[in-house]
Design a protein around this nucleic acid. Structure first.
Length: 203
DNA sequence: GACCCATTATTA
DNA sequence: TAATAATGGGTC
């Protein structure tokens, strides 16, 4: 048999470092001034915050990436309908989710949870059952068909894979369980970036 | 940059 | 309180 744990965990991982609010404030302030700091600036932030330079670099990479994603398709604004009439403007004097999120005064709130419709879930699940790793254009298609931001689609597949792995491992643990036979064929990518097909054993 | 995955936090 | 959407730091 094949054991995902074995394939995945070949080394110890550094424990996740938590960035405190104060540290975040320093990073954020610098980010607002300059997206891509040079070595000198990174070192300065490192000294100020006590964060390893590596962590700072990574944070800037991720934050810049997210920022671009956000402005690209406004993933967290999708539930705010486009304004078509004057009344809509009157009815919704809200700041955008993005601005709300970023504003310091607005209590750093996580964007509200997407409620998928039954139809959306069915389509997503159907797709997942044959391919757990949709290509960019496939995500794009799902996005337009389901009227969901691409970001939401990507996250859904990420979580679906996570869930699939977990249930698969549980089944593997309880040895001779016949449920194993019921496992759908799914391609799960291992950490070595290889594809592994459950059941048919293709790598 | 894409993905992993423990964790967080929002809803039914 | 369970299910799971979203986050963020980690790896390659």
């Amino acid at each position: 048999g094949l054991d995902p744990n074995f394939l995945r965990q070949s080394q110890f991982k550094r424990p996740r470092t938590r960035i405190t609010d104060d540290q975040l404030k320093i990073l954020r302030a610098n980010f607002d001034i300059n997206n891509s700091p040079n070595e000198e600036q990174i070192q300065e932030m490192s000294e100020k915050s006590g964060l390893p330079q590596k962590v700072i670099k990574h944070w800037f990479r991720n934050t810049l990436f997210k920022e671009r994603q956000r402005s690209k398709d406004s993933p967290y604004n999708f539930n705010i309908p486009p304004i078509t009439t004057l009344e809509d403007i009157r009815m919704e004097p809200q700041v955008s989710a993005h601005e709300y999120y970023r504003t310091e005064s607005g209590i750093n709130k996580r964007s509200s949870r997407t409620r998928f419709t039954d139809y959306q879930l069915r389509v997503l699940q159907d797709f997942f059952d044959t391919n757990a790793y949709p290509k960019d254009d496939e995500i794009e298609q799902l996005s337009t068909v389901l009227n969901l931001p691409t970001r939401v689609i990507v996250v859904w597949f990420q979580n679906a894979r996570q869930k699939a792995r977990k249930t698969y491992e549980n089944q593997a643990d309880s040895k001779d369980n016949e449920k194993k036979e019921l496992t759908n064929e799914r391609y799960i990518r291992t950490s070595n970036m290889q594809y592994q097909c459950k059941k048919c054993n293709i790598v």
